[in-house]
């Protein structure tokens, strides 16, 4: 079910994708698409295949069956990495011992648009500063990343993901281990990136608070795609309510 009314070609097309870890089926014939401008939340119970799906979309894992197109290009031959931003699930579990500065981490995000040899030059500092400003961390530029709090580290990873001004930003449970106040600021920043910077956002989350406040599309996975549609339809879906009972606290009114 794809309720996208956007006539432009989708940024992401997932076509009949299946995946198993050994004998355990994780994804079963999942088909959906993501349009430009979407702020999509991918939700589902633990083990429902959310992270696996994201890794398949990004080409980190190969699907058993089916195919994925990213920005109109088959993921197997995808080259436009400069248009993609990605914040992985374990971003906040970084090794505090690792001797890398905030600046060095954000600079990593610039490599996707560089050709061999990929050097960071003086003229790149402007882009690094801009990205850090967007996440309110400019003063932390030369600090070792291990010295920052979990929420600050998460924002550094967002800065790394947006330093290229990507068309689409993927985030995998970005607020795990982050306190409620920081989460709120974080989601507000994502909303601003989506509306002001026109960045399409795809977020895997366990926090339906964000579904309530920010997103305009929801995809619900449970090995198969149980639901994909607008926020309002999501709130009225009895299938979703039944599936998520107990794991998620559903509040379906907009502030």
């Amino acid at each position: 079910m794809d309720l996208s009314v956007n006539k432009r070609p989708p940024l992401v097309s997932v076509n009949n994708v299946s995946f198993s870890y050994g004998a355990t089926k994780v994804l079963d014939r999942v088909t959906f698409s993501i349009s430009a401008g979407d702020f999509l939340a991918i939700i589902g119970p633990n083990g429902s295949g959310k992270t696996t799906l994201l890794k398949i979309i990004l080409g980190i894992l190969q699907p058993e069956k089916g195919s994925v197109k990213l920005l109109g290009e088959n993921i197997k031959v995808f080259k436009q990495w400069g248009n993609i931003g990605y914040v992985p699930q374990k971003a906040t579990n970084i090794d505090s011992f690792f001797p890398v500065s905030v600046r060095e981490v954000v600079a990593m995000g610039l490599l996707s648009q560089k050709k061999f040899p990929r050097f960071i030059r003086k003229k790149d500092e402007g882009a690094i500063d801009r990205a850090l400003e967007q996440v309110n961390l400019k003063d932390f530029k030369n600090r070792r990343i291990g010295e920052l709090s979990g929420g600050q580290q998460q924002r550094v990873f967002i800065a790394r993901a947006i330093v290229n001004r990507p068309l689409i930003l993927f985030l995998d449970e970005p607020t795990t281990g982050v306190d409620a106040e920081t989460q709120e600021k974080f989601y507000s920043m994502l909303g601003r990136l989506n509306l002001a910077e026109k960045i399409t956002i795809v977020i895997i989350t366990h926090d339906l608070g964000i579904v309530n406040k920010r997103v305009n599309k929801v995809a619900c996975l449970n090995q198969r795609l149980v639901f994909h549609g607008t926020h309002d339809d999501f709130c009225n879906s009895s299938v979703v309510q039944e599936l998520l009972r107990g794991e998620y606290h559903l509040v379906c009114h907009r502030h």
Partner: peptide, 22 residues
């Protein structure tokens, strides 16, 4: 020196490095 940035990115975060075309 030639691959310094790539080596650093991969050492720090292999998965993300992959999604940057490294």
């Amino acid at each position: 020196a030639t691959f310094y940035q790539e080596f650093l990115y991969q050492t720090f975060d292999t998965e993300s490095a992959r999604t940057s075309g490294i």
